[in-house]
Amino acid sequence: MDNDIYGHVNNVVYYSYFDTVINRYLIQEGGLDPWNGEVIGVCAESSCRYRAAFAFPEDIEAGLRVARLGGRSVTYEIGLFKAGREEAGAEGRFVHVFVPRGDMTTAVAIPEQIRAALAKLQAG
């Protein structure tokens, strides 16, 4: 899954990067337990604007912020950067809706510990 036939990271891999950046933050800062927690976040919407190609084994840095923090959902903005560069090579948008693990159809309130961690990332 590194480089595709055109010699760069394939577009679908960017979404995996977004997911990794978001969930790493939620686990480390928000106390999310993706394996046993009662509430999980599921992706309701995502998009990416590609500005520059990445290629393995190039280092990629990521930035994460919260564009909108609702009662049951959050909209993230993610920037992927070539190491040391200030201009994003890709800009992502990702919406999480929080649901009970056993019923992934009914949105619930964002757990307080996760909400507090997300509030730290609110764009301002």
Rank of each mutant, 00 (worst) to 15 (best):
M1P: 11
M1Y: 14
N3L: 01
N3K: 10
D4L: 09
D4F: 11
D4S: 08
I5D: 03
Y6P: 04
Y6D: 05
H8S: 08
V9E: 01
V9T: 05
V9H: 01
N10C: 06
N10Q: 10
Y14E: 08
Y15R: 11
Y15T: 06
Y15N: 09
S16E: 10
Y17A: 04
Y17S: 07
Y17T: 06
V21T: 09
V21W: 06
I22L: 04
N23R: 11
R24Y: 12
R24P: 00
R24S: 09
Y25L: 03
Y25E: 03
Y25Q: 04
L26E: 02
I27K: 00
Q28E: 14
Q28Y: 09
Q28N: 11
G30W: 01
G30P: 03
G31V: 10
G31I: 10
L32E: 02
D33M: 12
P34E: 03
E38Q: 15
E38W: 15
C43V: 15
A44R: 15
A44N: 12
A44L: 14
A44M: 14
E45P: 05
E45W: 13
E45A: 14
S46M: 11
S47T: 14
S47V: 13
R49F: 05
Y50V: 11
Y50I: 13
Y50Q: 12
R51T: 13
A52T: 15
A53E: 12
F54H: 13
A55T: 15
A55W: 14
A55V: 14
P57L: 11
P57S: 10
E58K: 15
E58W: 13
I60W: 00
E61K: 15
A62R: 07
A62H: 07
A62N: 03
L64K: 14
V66N: 02
V66T: 10
A67R: 15
R68G: 02
G70K: 14
G70D: 08
G70T: 13
R72I: 09
R72T: 15
V74D: 03
T75G: 07
T75K: 12
T75Q: 13
I78S: 04
I78F: 03
F81G: 02
F81N: 04
K82Y: 06
K82L: 06
K82V: 00
G84S: 06
R85Q: 13
R85H: 12
E87D: 10
G89F: 05
A90R: 06
A90H: 05
A90Q: 00
G92E: 02
F94M: 01
F94A: 02
V95T: 08
V95P: 00
H96G: 00
V97G: 00
V97A: 08
V99S: 02
V99A: 00
V99M: 02
R101F: 03
R101Y: 03
R101P: 00
G102K: 08
D103P: 00
D103W: 09
D103G: 00
D103K: 10
T105W: 05
T105I: 00
T105H: 09
T105R: 11
T106Q: 08
V108T: 08
V108N: 00
A109M: 09
I110W: 00
I110M: 02
P111R: 12
E112Y: 07
Q113A: 11
I114Y: 03
I114L: 10
R115T: 02
A116R: 15
A117N: 01
L118C: 07
A119K: 13
K120D: 05
K120H: 09
L121F: 03
L121W: 05
Q122T: 13
A123E: 08
A123H: 12
G124D: 12
G124P: 13
